[in-house]
């Protein structure tokens, strides 16, 4: 499956608002606002180079590509699978695009939101949200990127709006409660 915005994830336009879908990420260097909706167990990862303002937002579903269907099918990685679906490949892709756009890894900081546990399913192996957050911490740690603020866990959904110019990640819950990170 193609990454929905792979061909335009570096936004050159002056659009004020860029929507990031599920299993998707986008990079902006124009100071646009990056938004994504409906994080349940999914995790939202907002990165910004504080000096250049080059920023990105990812909306990932599962911790690692190895957790995907390739594992249960017993085959290799699925060539049709979407990198932005997994925390590890999404962060790697996001960083690569930001660096390509001129960001410096040493100046990038991260804000993380999502990864809630809204339901307890019998069939699931549980705590996907928690594992998404752990995977995010791990992969960002590997790249030496500090997490400056988080709003993770709990049992409720979140929608995110990343104001790149101020570096503020607004986390909105249902019924309008908003917390700025």
């Amino acid at each position: 499956m193609k990454v929905y915005t792979s061909d335009q994830s570096t936004e050159q336009s002056t659009s004020e608002r860029v929507k990031v879908g599920v299993a998707d990420y986008a990079v902006t260097e124009s100071g646009a606002e990056l938004v994504t909706s409906g994080l349940g167990s999914c995790v939202g990862i907002a990165l910004v180079d504080t000096e250049t303002g080059i920023a990105g937002l990812a909306h990932a579903m599962l911790p690692a590509a190895s957790d995907g269907r390739s594992q249960t099918d017993g085959g290799g990685p699925d060539p049709m699978s979407n990198d932005a679906k997994y925390v590890d490949t999404a962060v790697n892709g996001l960083l690569r695009e930001m660096v390509d756009a001129g960001a410096d890894r040493s100046r990038i900081e991260a804000r993380v939101a999502g990864g809630s546990a809204m339901f307890e399913f019998n069939a699931g192996d549980g705590a996907v949200g928690e594992r998404n957050v752990e995977a995010t911490e791990e992969v960002l740690g590997e790249h030496g990127i500090p997490i400056v603020a988080t709003d993770v866990g709990g049992d409720h959904g979140r929608s995110l709006s990343f104001d790149v110019s101020s570096g503020t990640l607004s986390v909105r819950r249902a019924h309008g409660d908003t917390r700025d990170l």
């Binding site: 909706s37 349940g40 167990s41 809204m118 996907v128 409720h156 929608s159």
Partner: peptide, 15 residues
């Protein structure tokens, strides 16, 4: 809750 966030964990299990 947020409509899309309600469905998100169900889809994630399937994913």
């Amino acid at each position: 809750d947020i409509a899309s966030a309600i469905v998100d964990p169900l889809v994630t299990e399937l994913a």
